[in-house]
Each structure stands twice: as structure tokens, then as C-alpha cells.
């Protein structure tokens, strides 16, 4: 096993899939020649190795980038395009929401749109709310899109490879803080299935459902509870759409207690959806009211103390767990 950051793992996935399938190409702003050149970044070195025909630096034109993906997919290629920072999704969203997600349905199942939109998400860097916005619930609310949010480098690699081979549009959201937190990645080739949650830690007393950067935080909180004799089970959903509700429900039926944590703000956030599923299908198993730990309903602020206040931390999660055990 190599120790890689998530950016390096994404880079490996792109590399392997481009070598495997000549129909795979990548496009986006600064993905060939970028402002930042670091081997920790996802598209590092790909221009040199695959050439400008397959590694397309684009103008600052998110609608055209997303349209490029939709059209190229309709015509049989497998585009992987990048949205530089998550708030710029709005500029690409007509192509993703009204076209990538709907055109197969509108064709009566005749056409396929095998495309991946990689979105880089960046809170925790003081960049402010127009560079930091957790919008996974928007994407998951659109029928026709798959939404993937990996928490580890190994998952990122396996899930991105699956996303590229998937015949449906996949929104793949990478938390940039994870680019710089190395984790083990298997040496041999593997795929991680889309739509399968993973129990990242077994426990019998309380279930914490998390994804992306919140999984690491939850694992640390769980270690702390373990010293007190409380065993927290961590379910990493990995994919919001399709959601592996069976794994979530099985865990809640076992522990009888649930906390859902996400960095996105609370109202309309995906924790609400997971909570509703548990209330509908496993209410009888609940020994205590469920809890949500989320960002407050504010834009992500820039100043360090304000931004830290926004992002859920271990203390927030620990208090929520304490309330229900």
C-alpha cells in the first residue's frame, strides 16, 4: 500500500482510466497548465503524459465546460470535466441539471450520458463563501444524477474509476483539505462500487452517518468515546445518490441511536433526508431522538474564527452524541 493524498489518488484513477479507454478525456480550467503545480493535485502531470488532445485546458466558461461534457458524452466519449470550486457549479448548473440529468429520460432511454463532473470543495481555507459552498444536497435532489463524496484517498480512487465507467452522469465532489491528508491506497487495480456505504468503524451504541471530510472527524470522536466504553459506529455513505439506505438502517436497528453530520448548512441539507428515511423505516428501533450536526444557515465566512464557527467540529459531534446516549 502506498500512502497518498486524495488528489494523488484521483490522479491515479484518471491516469488508469485514460490508459484503459481512449474515449476518456479531461477538461477544465487550469487542469493542464495551472496556477499551482503540485504533485498533490489531481491533474498534476497529465498534460505531459496524455497530451493536449486529451487534457483540455478551457477558458473560464463553466457553461461551455459542462456543455462540452454533455455533448461529448451524447456522442460517445467519456468526459471527465472539472469545476474549479463548488460555488461555480451554479454557472454550469443548467447544463448539469437541465441537460445531463434529464436528456436520457427525455430520449425515452435511447441516449446515454456517461460523464463525470469533478467538483472541488474548499472550506477551511479562508477563501469565503464564493469559493466554499457545500451543495451536495442540490445535486442529490436532481433525479438523473449520481452524487459521490469520498472520505479517503482509497475510496476516491476506486469510486472515481467506477464513476468514469458508469453510463450515467456522476457528480464527484472532492474536499480539497483531504488532498493533503495521506492515507493507504492499494497497489493493485480495484473499483469501489457507487451506491454502497461502508462501515468505517464498528460500534454497538450509536450510529454516526457521515461523508467526505466529516468521516475523519467522526472517527476521532469515536476514539474518544471508546475510552469511555461507548462504541460509536461510523457509516460513511460515500454516495448520496443512489443512497445505500439498507446499510444505514441496519446500523440504526443495531445501535438504536443516530447522529447525522455534514459540513453543509442545516436547512434542506441531506441529513434531513437520512433522518426522514430512518423515521419512516426504523422509528421503532430508535431509543432516543436523532440528532443532526451541521453548519449553521449562513454563507461560509472568510475570517478564521468565523469560518471555524461554521464548520462542524469534534466538540459539536461529541455533544450531540452525549445528548442521546
Amino acid at each position: 500500500m502506498n500512502q497518498l493524498g486524495m488528489g494523488q489518488a484521483v490522479n491515479q484513477a484518471l491516469r488508469e482510466e485514460m490508459m484503459r479507454d481512449s474515449g476518456v478525456f479531461i477538461a477544465g480550467e487550469g487542469i493542464g497548465v495551472g496556477i499551482m503545480e503540485s504533485p498533490m493535485l489531481p491533474t498534476f502531470g497529465l498534460l505531459k503524459d496524455f497530451g493536449p488532445e486529451r487534457v483540455k485546458d478551457t477558458p473560464v466558461s463553466e457553461a461551455a465546460i459542462a456543455g462540452l461534457a454533455v455533448g461529448a458524452a451524447a456522442a460517445g466519449l467519456r468526459p471527465v470535466v472539472e469545476i474549479l470550486f463548488s460555488p461555480f457549479f451554479t454557472l454550469a448548473s443548467d447544463m448539469i441539471v437541465n441537460h445531463a440529468a434529464k436528456l436520457r429520460y427525455l430520449s425515452g432511454g435511447k441516449s446515454t450520458f456517461p460523464l463525470v463532473v469533478r467538483i472541488k470543495n474548499a472550506s477551511g481555507h479562508g477563501a469565503g463563501c464564493q469559493h466554499s459552498h457545500n451543495l451536495e444536497a442540490w445535486a442529490a435532489h436532481c433525479p438523473g444524477l449520481k452524487v459521490v463524496m469520498p472520505s479517503t484517498p482509497a475510496d476516491a480512487k476506486g469510486l472515481l474509476k467506477s464513476a468514469i465507467r458508469d453510463d450515467n452522469p456522476v457528480i464527484f465532489i472532492e474536499n480539497m483539505a483531504l488532498y493533503f491528508q495521506p492515507g493507504p491506497v492499494p497497489d493493485e487495480e480495484y473499483l469501489t462500487p457507487i451506491g454502497k456505504a461502508e462501515i468505517k468503524r464498528q460500534g454497538k451504541d450509536v450510529t454516526v452517518v457521515a461523508w467526505s471530510n466529516m468521516v475523519g472527524l467522526a472517527l476521532r470522536a469515536a476514539d474518544q468515546f471508546s475510552q469511555e466504553g461507548v462504541e460509536v459506529e461510523i457509516v460513511d455513505v460515500r454516495t448520496l445518490a443512489p443512497l445505500d439506505k439498507e446499510t444505514i438502517l441496519a446500523s440504526v436497528r443495531k445501535t438504536g441511536r443516530l447522529v447525522v453530520i455534514h459540513e453543509a448548512n442545516r436547512t434542506g441539507g441531506f441529513a434531513g433526508e437520512i433522518s426522514a428515511i430512518v423515521m419512516e423505516e426504523a422509528l421503532a428501533s430508535l431509543k432516543a431522538p436523532l440528532r443532526r450536526v451541521t453548519g449553521p444557515d449562513i454563507p461560509v465566512p472568510a475570517s478564521p474564527p468565523l469560518e471555524s464557527f461554521y464548520i462542524p467540529n469534534e466538540e459539536n459531534l461529541i455533544s450531540a452524541i452525549r445528548e442521546i446516549i
Binding site: 461534457a69 455533448g71 456522442a75 466519449l77 468526459p79 447544463m95 437541465n98 441537460h99
Partner: peptide
């Protein structure tokens, strides 16, 4: 006739994509 879009202005970016595939 790969798609008909009723979003006004929706067609041109998609045409860029299909033409890219033809060129590719």
C-alpha cells in the same frame, strides 16, 4: 438528432461537446 432542448441557449454548449467528439 441527439437532443432538442427547450432551455433557450441550451443548445450551443452541447453542440460544442458533440463537435468535440467528432474532432476527437
Amino acid at each position: 438528432a441527439l437532443c432538442t432542448t427547450t432551455v433557450v441557449g441550451g443548445g450551443p454548449p452541447i453542440a460544442v461537446g458533440t463537435a468535440f467528439a467528432q474532432q476527437y
